[in-house]
Design a protein around this nucleic acid. Structure first.
Lengths: 250, 250
DNA sequence: AGTAAACATTCGGCTCTGCCGAAGACTTCT
DNA sequence: AGAAGTCTTCGGCAGAGCCGAATGTTTACT
C-alpha cells in the first residue's frame, strides 16, 4: 500500500475515464480537459487503440466493447451473482418493481445486476453503477453485517455524504439503525438516496456469516405504503435466503 | 496508424487481459504467464489498483466492476442498442429461443445484448463476446451490407478461420452468399460456428443504408426445420425493421 | 515446533522510454 | 485563398520505469 505507482498507467486510465464519462473524445478536447499536452494525449490514444480497448473513427475516440467483455466475465465468476440466478427476475415479476443485486467494492455499493418489473420506475441504474454504502437500503444491509471497526473505517475514509435531506449523516444514528437492521433481517430507506423512492433490501450471507451482497427492491413512495413494505420485505428476504442456500452449490 | 506505442500501457492491459481471462491472479503467477519480472508485475498491479480498475484481496488480484460500468455506459450511447429497446425481449418470448443484438467492431462481430427465451439453449454468449464475421449468420448479415472492398480488407486481415466443418473458408463462396443474403434480407447459418446450431439473422440499416448491427435468433437444429426457419426469419426481419425506424428517433 | 521453500514486497542505481515543444500535414472555416 | 484550428510526426533530453537482489512474510512439509 505504498505510493508506488506508474504515471503511464495512471494517465492511460484517466483518459479511459474521461472517454467513459462523456462518450466522445477528440485529441485536443481530451488534452484540454485532462490538462495534458496534445501530443502526449495523442500518443496514449494510439497506445490504447492498439490494445483494443479504445477505437477511433473519424478522429473520434471511444471505448470499445472490451470493457463490457471484461466486466461480464468477472461477473460470471462472482459467486453471489451465480447463486442469485433467476431470483431477481422472479421478484421483479412478483412485485412489478425495480430489482437489483448489489455488492460492496472499495468502500462503495455497486450494482451487479438489474431486473425491471413491469411497473418499474426508470432509475438510472445499470450494472457497475456505484453509490455510498450509508445512503441506501442495500448499503445499510451490507454494513449491518460487517464488523463495527470495518464500518468505522469506511466512514472515516468516505464520510457520510448527504444525498438528500433524509440521508443519514450522523454516525450514531447510523450505528443504531444497523443494529436494528441486523436484528430484523432487512433494511429500508425512504428517500435517503433519491427523494420519493423507497428501497427494501435483504442481505445475502455465506455459511461463515460473511456478507456477500444484498438484494434490493425499489419503488415510488406513493405505491409502497406500510403494508406493502412488509409484503416486499418478506419477498426479498425469501429470495436472499434461497440465494444463500445456492451459494453452497456454485 | 504508425507503430507508435507505449510500453507501460501495453503491459498494463496485457495484465488486465490476463486477469479477465482466468479471473485469478497472484503476482508471481501472472509474472510467469506474461514472462515479466515479478517486481515489475507487482508495480503494475499496484498502479492498476490505485486506478480503481483492479482490486486485491488476500494477494489475489482481480478486475473490478469498473469494467462493467464503462462498458454499460458505452452501450447506452450506442444508437442501435437504444433503438432495439424491447424488441429482443419480444422475440425471445415469441420464439422461445436465444436472441442477440450484434455489431461490428475492429473486424469482428460482437454481442451487445442477449435475451434468452424460455427454451433457449445455454450458449456461452454474453455482452462483449466476439466471433469472426464470416462464421455466423449475424456476421454474414453485416458483411452483406458492407462495400465489397471493405469485406475484402477484413478477409485479408482476419482470414477465414474454420470454426466447424461447415464454416465458409472460401472467399468466392462467401461473396456468393453475401449477394443472396443482401437480396433476401436475412442470413442463415447451420452449424457454421457451433455444430448443431442454427442461427437466423437480419441486418439493421440506417437511413443512409449504412449497416449498424444485426439481430439474431439461435436454436438447436433439431428444433428448427425448414418451415420454422422461415417463420423465425419473418420475426427477425420485422424486429430489425422496427429497430431501423426507431433509429431516427433516438 | 522448526525448517525450508515459495511467494510478496521494498530498494536503488542504471537505462531506456515516455515526454512534449516545435514543425509539418491536414481540415475546416471565413 | 488565406487563416485558424486540429492532428500527426520528429527527436533530443530528463526522469520514469525497470528489474536484480535483499528483506519480509506466508505456506508447506518434516
Amino acid at each position: 500500500m505504498t505510493g508506488t505507482s506508474n504515471r503511464s498507467v495512471e494517465r492511460a486510465f484517466r483518459i479511459v475515464d474521461e472517454l467513459a464519462e462523456n462518450g466522445s473524445g477528440r485529441v485536443s478536447e481530451l488534452a484540454e480537459r485532462l490538462d495534458m499536452p496534445v501530443s502526449t494525449v495523442h500518443n496514449y490514444l494510439q497506445a490504447l487503440v492498439s490494445t483494443g480497448y479504445v477505437t477511433v473513427e473519424d478522429k473520434e475516440y471511444a471505448t470499445t466493447t472490451r470493457f463490457l467483455e471484461v466486466g461480464h466475465r468477472q461477473r460470471h465468476r462472482l459467486e453471489v451473482f451465480k447463486a442469485v440466478s433467476d431470483e431477481l427476475q422472479d421478484i421483479a415479476a412478483e412485485t412489478g418493481e425495480h430489482v437489483t443485486l448489489l455488492v460492496e467494492e472499495n468502500d462503495q455499493c455497486v450494482i451487479v445486476a438489474v431486473q425491471e418489473g413491469p411497473d418499474a420506475v426508470n432509475l438510472f441504474a445499470y450494472p457497475g453503477a456505484r453509490m455510498p454504502l450509508h445512503a441506501a437500503a442495500p448499503g445499510k444491509a451490507i454494513l449491518a453485517h460487517m464488523p463495527d471497526d470495518r464500518v468505522r473505517e469506511i466512514i472515516d475514509r468516505q464520510g457520510l455524504v448527504e444525498m438528500t435531506k433524509r440521508t443519514i449523516t450522523d454516525p450514531d444514528v447510523l450505528f443504531e439503525q444497523l443494529e436494528r437492521i441486523s436484528e430484523q433481517g432487512y433494511a429500508v430507506d425512504e428517500g435517503e438516496r433519491i427523494a420519493g423512492m423507497v428501497c427494501i433490501s435483504a442481505p445475502v450471507l455465506d455459511k461463515g456469516d460473511r456478507i456477500r451482497g444484498a438484494i434490493c427492491v425499489c419503488g415510488p413512495q406513493s405505491r409502497i405504503d406500510e403494508a406493502r413494505r412488509e409484503e416486499i420485505a418478506e419477498i426479498v428476504q425469501r429470495a436472499a435466503n434461497v440465494t444463500q442456500v445456492n451459494l453452497d452449490y456454485v
